[in-house]
Structure formats: C-alpha cells, structure tokens
C-alpha cells in the first residue's frame, strides 16, 4: 500500500518537473500569455477547475444538494426532503494563482481547509499546452460524537474511544486541463483520499480519477458535466479479495464506493457563477465522495443541486 502511494507521489513529482522545463524553455523563445475564458468559475459542480480569480479576490461559495428525486412529487423531487447537503465556503486569492479556502458542510459538519495552486496555465500559442493545478484539503468531522457506541476491535470488551484524530480526513488532487476550443474545456484529474476513521471493513485510502468539462452554448451559458471514479486497487485495499462470508464472519462486502456522475447548466456574470445540476452522490467534500459514496449511478439516486459563487475584489 505504502509503495503505491510512493509511486503516485513520485509520478506527480516527475510530471510537474517535466512541465517546469517546458515553461522555462518557453520563456526564452517568446512570451506567450495564458488562454482566456477557459472556465468561468473555480468550481465545477463539486469539483475544482484550474480557474483562480485575480489576487486579493474573496470568493463566497454556496453549494446545495437536495434529497434524491426518487419520491417524486410527494417531496417536490427531493427539494423539500429533509435529506440534502449544504456547504458554505470562503476562498481568498493570496498570490497569483494561489488560493486558500475554508468551508463548512452540513453533512457531518465537516470543516475543510483547502488550498489550490494553478502551477501552469495553458497558453495561447500552445507553448504550455495544458493547465496544471494541484488542490488539497484537510477536513475535521465536526459532529457531536460523544455517544458513538462502536465495537472496539483492538480491545474487545472496551468501549471505542472516539478521539480528535478520528475526525480527520484528507484529499489531494492533480488536475490537468485544456481549453480545447472556444466552446469546450475539459479536465482530467487523479486524486488520493484518506480518512482516519471509516466504517468497519471499509478502506481508509482511495485513489480516484476525475473527468469534467464545460461546453459553452451561449455567451453566458454552458453545459457542465463531471464524472468521479473511485478506483478499486487491491494493492492498497485493506479488504482481502478472497474474503467471503464463510472465511470471514460478518463479511458481506466487498465495500467499494460508487462513482459520481453529475451534469448541469452554468450561467455566469461578472461576479457570479450559478450552476444547477443533478448528481448521484450526496457528498460535497471530495474525500467524503471518494470514500463514502454508496449511492450508485441509478436514476432514483440523483438529486438536484446548485453551486453559486460570488466574487468580491479588494
């Protein structure tokens, strides 16, 4: 498991270095500016884009996902359902293409502290062919956990002692994006998620792939889509592939999170981006989505949601 992680990190390091050399040589040849209007917002549904506003801009993010649509008109397709998730966030651009942020989600009262850095921007003359962005966050589960009654596997008979450490989870992502045409921008990303505390049998670590994009259909409107796939890598899984209910009492796994598909429409103005979408994962925090999503891509699981960003510049 440790080895795989090491390889991934090494891979990232090599990648970024390759690009670094690219840019240095580009500098010598001719100054080439970043492409315009690849994205309208730093958010794409629940995901990040390589877009970071100008320095000293404060961005407010409001994300809201309603309940799933499966109850139909009885709860207005989930809009009036008690379930649902909300995240309120603030991001601030501290330096050119570097942003830090903080958000609180309704689900598990996650407090997340995040940072995003767009290392390279695709340029107009293609001297840098892609956007390269890294994003990471650390989150604290803020629920009242005083009364969790859990089985203590290490010391059966003792009560499980839920410590602060158990509240922490992490997410790190490398995003490669490209504005393909004036209308179409796409991104691919690889991520690593870790949670200190997961349900019995579940994995603490998860590698994931992400694909998303934006297709402009009018000056201010665009179709947006996003697909997140948690990978099943036996090498880093704590679940043994040979486990079954006979040789492992209590086992009815395997427990693997489901992918998340979402699609919607974005309208943007000078200071706002408004995205309305449908998606199958109730999670918003990305590690929560990659580790805990158990609602598959099934029509009944889809929920309506929106993401709004508002900018203030200082």
């Amino acid at each position: 498991m440790k080895k795989t992680i090491l390889y991934i990190l090494l891979g990232l390091f090599v990648c970024t270095n390759l690009f670094a050399q690219d840019e240095e040589s580009a500098d010598v040849v001719e100054k080439d500016k970043p492409v315009r209007f690849a994205w309208e917002s730093g958010m794409l549904i629940d995901q990040q884009t390589s877009h970071i506003p100008t320095v000293k801009t404060l961005e407010m993010v409001i994300q809201h996902k309603f309940g799933s649509i499966d109850n139909g008109s009885s709860d207005l397709w989930g809009i009036y359902a008690p379930a649902g998730n909300i995240r309120l966030g603030l991001n601030y651009v501290v330096a050119n293409n570097v942003q830090i942020g903080w958000g609180i989600s309704k689900r598990n009262m996650y407090n997340d502290f995040n940072a995003k850095w767009t290392i390279f921007e695709q340029t107009r003359k293609n001297q840098v062919p892609v956007f390269v962005t890294v994003y990471a966050n650390a989150a604290i589960d803020g629920m009242n956990r005083d009364d969790v009654e859990l089985f203590n596997f290490e010391e059966p008979g003792q009560k499980f002692d839920y410590k602060f450490n158990n509240r922490l989870s992490y997410f790190a992502q490398l995003i490669i994006g490209r504005k393909v045409t004036n209308a179409l921008s796409v991104q691919g990303a690889v991520s690593f998620s870790h949670a200190n505390f997961v349900p019995q049998w579940h994995d603490h670590d998860r590698v994931g792939l992400h694909f998303n994009g934006r297709l402009k259909v009018s000056p201010q409107g665009a179709i947006i889509f996003n697909y997140d796939v948690p990978l099943q890598i036996d090498g880093i899984s704590e679940q043994h592939p040979d486990w079954n209910s006979t040789n492992t009492p209590g086992w009815d796994g395997p427990y693997h999170p489901e992918p998340n598909l979402s699609f919607g429409y974005e309208v943007s103005t000078s200071t706002h981006a408004f995205q309305i979408y449908m998606g199958n994962s109730p999670a918003m925090l990305l590690q929560d989505m990659m580790i805990n999503n158990n609602t598959g891509i099934d029509f009944d699981n889809f929920a309506i949601g929106f993401t709004i960003t508002r900018l203030w510049s200082f």
């Binding site: 315009r36 209007f37 004036n182 000056p219 201010q220 943007s268 103005t269 000078s270």
Partner: peptide
Amino acid sequence: DRVGKILYIKHCRS
C-alpha cells in the same frame, strides 16, 4: 473582436 464582445456581455451588459 470576439474577446471584446465576450467581456462586454459578461461585465457590462447588465
């Protein structure tokens, strides 16, 4: 031309 128009629609039209 295209850039000017996009910027105008985004920031000024309202």
